[in-house]
């Protein structure tokens, strides 16, 4: 029963959501709207689960003395933002938004900026003309990089057309093939979940 009930709920909601997609009747729209509303409510509750788990794990690790500084900073962040939001709100020009703009945003931009650095190291290490396909990949990457740079002359006048051709034909064809495969994979996985063949999401096969 513990497994059959969620499987039945999953199947029922799968069928309802599929059918309502093809109807514009007021009843269908109302069902759709109600499910979407509940979806958002359930999501809000799951955040509590995440916050509780985060706090519990970090407090345990602080007690054990592991990575204590990082854990305390994490917990301070977790506590300070809701407190600021509760006292002064989250609109513009509040302490919460000051923290967001001057602490959180720069920290996130810093981590994002690592991407540029890792692109450099990955290019240095990974783009080697070991074989013909690897050489084709390397040349395409170089053409694309040059075409997105404003060097002037040939590089700015002719190369962007070559790059756009690569983007519009070989790259697009490969991408579409992968997308069709992903679409079919998603379809079969969803159906397997709905009819109960795939049960890992419930914790296992029992």
């Amino acid at each position: 029963m513990a497994r059959k009930f969620p499987l039945a709920v999953c199947f029922l909601f799968g069928v309802v959501m599929f059918l309502q997609y093809f109807s514009q009747h007021e009843a269908a729209r109302a069902v759709n709207q109600a499910i979407l509303d509940y979806w958002q409510i359930v999501f809000a509750f799951t955040l509590i689960l995440g916050v509780f788990s985060f706090a519990r794990n970090n407090v345990t690790e602080v007690r054990r003395g592991r990575d204590r500084v990082y854990r305390i900073v994490g917990l301070a962040g977790l506590l300070s933002m809701p407190v600021l939001a509760l006292i002064w709100g989250i609109k513009a020009d509040t302490p919460f938004m000051w923290m967001f703009e001057n602490v959180q945003a720069p920290m996130q931009s810093t981590v994002f900026a690592l991407l540029a650095i890792f692109v450099a190291s990955a290019s240095f290490r990974g783009f080697r003309a070991r074989s013909l396909p690897a050489a084709v990949l390397l040349i395409s990457a170089t053409v694309m990089l040059l075409s997105r740079s404003n060097i002037g002359g040939f590089f700015s006048d002719v190369l962007p057309d070559v790059a756009n051709w690569i983007r519009d034909y070989p790259s697009m064809a490969a991408r579409r093939a992968i997308l069709i495969g992903i679409g079919l994979g998603s379809l079969t996985t969803s159906l397997r979940v709905m009819v109960g063949i795939e049960r890992t999401w419930l914790g296992g096969e029992k």
């Binding site: 540029a116 692109v119 450099a120 290019s123 240095f124 290490r125 783009f127 080697r128 003309a129 070991r130 390397l138 990457a141 170089t142 990089l145 040059l146 997105r148 740079s149 404003n150 060097i151």
Partner: peptide, 23 residues
């Protein structure tokens, strides 16, 4: 755009250096 173009050229230089070292 100047910063982006220069960074692109720098990455191309790294690719060339990586390949020279490899060969």
């Amino acid at each position: 755009m100047l910063a982006q173009s220069s960074a692109h050229l720098y990455v191309i230089l790294l690719i060339v250096l990586g390949n020279v070292a490899y060969f």
